[in-house]
Design a protein around this nucleic acid. Structure first.
Lengths: 339, 339
DNA sequence: CTTGTTTATGTTATCGTTATCACAAAACGT
DNA sequence: ACGTTTTGTGATAACGATAACATAAACAAG
């Protein structure tokens, strides 16, 4: 029975409750001082009328929305989903509503998205990654709201940062393999310049190999992001064809690592007996599969939780204007797939 | 350089462009009639001032927001992410912004979420599933906006439906196994009454077994949703302990099926030689792993695309008031994990 | 009993956009 | 050339909540 009459407003509630609209407004704010009985009468009247608070009007009048804009590369990615989940939990209590957009790993799509999201006058913007178009940077800097970049450590941040060095994390992985005595190490990652975090990981791989005076020539390009299981499997087949003597493979993510593992299983290649495999991201599949996959846990929920905490401080003006740079320390998880 | 002055409004743009605010407003609406030169001058002025359109004010004045509220059980689920992704693509062109919330498989959390989302006066509400608290039903019915239930075929729909029968889909899977001559078939699913789609699948399993005059006693409860890989593996161990002569297992999702497969591999049980395994959802892991997992593809992107299409028709008032009930036909994908 | 403080409520004006009505000028049809 | 339609623009008021200020009553302190 959708009511055909116009939806009731605070004025309607006020009339029924026998108070002024202002008192109704206060009755709906948790912190406001209203007589308990009056508030009860108002809420009863509101319930009776089927009144629904109108955030739009509230947001306009108070010049202060309850939105936080968030962009992630892909919805369909457990890591980013975890970050957004933790973020959401941290913002729930303050009644903040996330406006989520996904960029499809494309900084131009990010630009479009940021422009669209800013029209809703969010209280803050949280973006994934530290590489943006000049226009995106301009839009965010002139928006006069806090900006948090995550999942990265940008050289020239837009504002605050909650992230880690993707390059360093992969270097730790290379070190792990080298300590085990492996030298013919390959890297499977994306080929386009779209996935900046993936490229950072590749850069870290190359840097670490050079540091160990090893050849960083076994670089397999698995196509544009997202690099998923299928691309990982295909890349592994190509690697095994072109460089069968490879001793270890580091993949840009656990998903591609799992694909690589499956490719080995199809070929009857023993992991880790003949080849060691490592991934990135600590996806569940890598913990469950046989053999389980050595990986790096970038603590995505911690990223979200820290961002939420920082945001709450900023909105409370507890934090001063100094840009915060909060480091996450990814954890290396040695599992069965590497000797 | 966050501007410290107040953000420019249409009035400011109007002054610079030498027109009235109304003309500026029209210049920002794609369909409005404005002289091309005038519009160009206005857009230039807006760009120069760093003007950002204020949806909040627009939404309030026109009594018509650009929001569509969407609830899904979990962000971290490739199926729902696919549905939301396709939905988003379908709504992008109309400039609609999705307000996403996740219920954590809890209809009481859904109630809280729906109440919160309705405060933003969305143009429509899209929910996952057909089971809701009485209050959720009341809120949605009195909201006077289109409601679409997805991923299910509710007996008493709130409005429109884009979904399929989870029970029927699993029955088809049982039929497949029975045709292959398997009779000692188990089901691994959730135990709580929270995941309604999971329970529907279990109901379909029991119904199909009874139809084939087989005992539906091998029911393993894997805990509260989301039932993931780990729960699937644990459930499989319990099943193998309690009923080692089981010939086939149907899992509530591909994730739990993969967990079950891994458990078999750890125990040295051959799949499908000794046990056949099937899942639900056509997650990528099931297509890549060895052996690949027989599954049912519920076509999540199609659900999202249909919902978007329906929504656009409804907002254009192309569709009449009759509730639409659009059936999805899940596809049975036979793979290596079943004989 | 006066004065100051707290508590509970009301009044007025306004946030930034746009629905609506109004109107002049240009384009069109005959 | 004259009525009719189309095109382009402006003036005014309003969407629904609340910031800011005002006020009355109750209460405490001296």
């Amino acid at each position: 029975m959708p009511s055909l009459r116009k939806a009731p407003t605070m004025t309607d509630v006020a009339r029924v409750a026998g108070v002024s609209p202002m008192t109704v407004s206060r009755a709906f704010k948790p912190g406001a001082r209203v007589n308990d009985q009056t508030r009860a009468r108002i809420l009863e009247a509101a319930e009776h009328l089927g009144y629904v608070f109108d955030s739009t009007a509230s947001n306009l009048r108070s010049q202060k929305t309850d939105f936080v804009a968030v962009t992630i590369p892909s919805l369909n990615n457990a890591n980013f989903a975890d970050t957004v989940g933790a973020l959401n939990e941290g913002l729930q209590a303050r009644g903040l509503q996330i406006l989520l957009g996904y960029t499809n790993y494309d900084i131009h799509e990010e630009e479009r998205l940021v422009a669209q999201l800013l029209r809703h006058k969010p209280q803050a913007v949280i973006v994934t990654g530290g590489r943006h178009t000049p226009r995106t940077r301009h839009l965010l800097l002139s928006a006069a709201v806090p900006v948090i970049e995550t999942w990265d450590l940008p050289e020239t941040p837009l504002g605050h940062v909650v992230g880690f060095s993707n390059a360093d994390a992969v270097q730790a992985m290379v070190d792990h393999f080298v300590r085990k005595g492996l030298t013919r190490i390959a890297f499977i990652g994306g080929d386009a310049d779209r996935d900046t975090r993936g490229l950072d990981r590749r850069r870290g791989f190359v840097a670490a190999m050079q540091r160990h005076r090893l050849e960083a020539t076994r670089l397999i390009a698995a196509g544009p992001p997202p690099i998923s299981m299928r691309e990982g499997a295909e890349a592994m087949h190509r690697l095994l064809d072109s460089a069968p003597d490879t001793e270890a493979v580091i993949c840009v993510s656990d998903l591609s690592a799992f694909g690589a593992l499956s490719a080995c299983q199809r070929r009857g290649i023993d992991v880790p007996g003949q080849i060691s495999i490592a991934g990135f991201g600590n996806y569940e599949v890598g913990a469950i599969c046989v053999p389980s996959i050595t990986t790096i846990d970038p603590l995505p929920r911690q990223i979200g939780a820290f961002a939420a905490e920082l945001l709450c401080d900023l909105l409370d003006e507890k934090a001063d204007d100094m840009p915060v740079r909060r480091h996450i320390l990814p954890q290396l998880l040695i599992r069965e797939s590497s000797i």
